[in-house]
């Protein structure tokens, strides 16, 4: 599974993921709390400048805006009708600024770096007996399961086609659940047999 990370070596790419996430969070709070059109506009402009600094091609910006324009337009039309121009500009600008900033963080940070940042953010949870170190393990295991599940689903579909079973949701879902649960049992036994440390 490909991540949404866009490789590069700009300042933003080299910046550690943790502070980038904090900046995103703080900006989000600020935009909602300050709630002024000029402030949101400034944030939006800064995001565009950062986009430039990150050397992410504006083509990418165009692609993301194409996905968003329907929702932005509908929102704008509705807001102009219901609350007037000022609120409309505010709502749409806020949506675009925050969304583009967030996707900038996603595009300039390696998945593994974000995982590491989240793990260190979750470190206090160790005090209540949880194991933040398990986050990366769980994510890795989940990603490994996805192709396995697809494979099992195709196996079941093929067997059912051979027997002439029609496409029914439960006829696929149930054997898929039972097969993958059995597979999960085997995997955890294998992990334990290899001395996977369990809590």
């Amino acid at each position: 599974m490909l991540s949404l990370y866009r490789p590069g070596d700009s300042v933003l790419h080299r910046a550690p993921a943790g502070p980038k996430l904090v900046v995103l969070l703080v900006t989000c709070l600020a935009v909602f709390l300050v709630d002024e059109l000029w402030f949101t506009a400034v944030c939006g402009t800064v995001v565009l400048v950062l986009w430039r600094i990150a050397h992410i091609p504006y083509r990418e910006l165009g692609r993301q805006l194409r996905e968003l324009w329907v929702i932005a337009l509908l929102l704008a039309v509705f807001q102009v009708w219901a609350n007037g121009w000022h609120e409309a500009a505010m709502t749409v600008l806020r949506l675009l600024a925050l969304l583009l900033l967030a996707s900038l963080v996603t595009m300039t940070s390696r998945t593994s770096h974000i995982v590491d940042a989240l793990e260190s953010a979750a470190r206090p949870l160790a005090l209540v007996g949880m194991r933040p170190g398990r986050i990366a393990f769980l994510i890795g295991l989940t990603l490994r399961f996805i192709p396995l599940i697809r494979e099992k689903a195709e196996e079941i579909r093929a067997a059912q086609r051979a027997r002439g079973v029609e496409r029914r949701p439960l006829a696929l879902l149930l054997p898929l659940l039972l097969k993958t649960l059995t597979m999960a049992d085997a995997i955890s036994e294998a992990l334990d047999a290899r001395g996977f440390e369990s809590t």
């Binding site: 490909l2 949404l4 990370y5 993301q64 949506l95 969304l99 595009m107 998945t111 974000i114 989940t142």
Partner: peptide, 25 residues
Amino acid sequence: VFVLLVAVGLPVLPGGRGGMGIFFL
């Protein structure tokens, strides 16, 4: 774990969407 997968930028939502931007929609 699923929400984390979205947050760390993996395209796990329908249509290959993901990343932190989703949470601002």
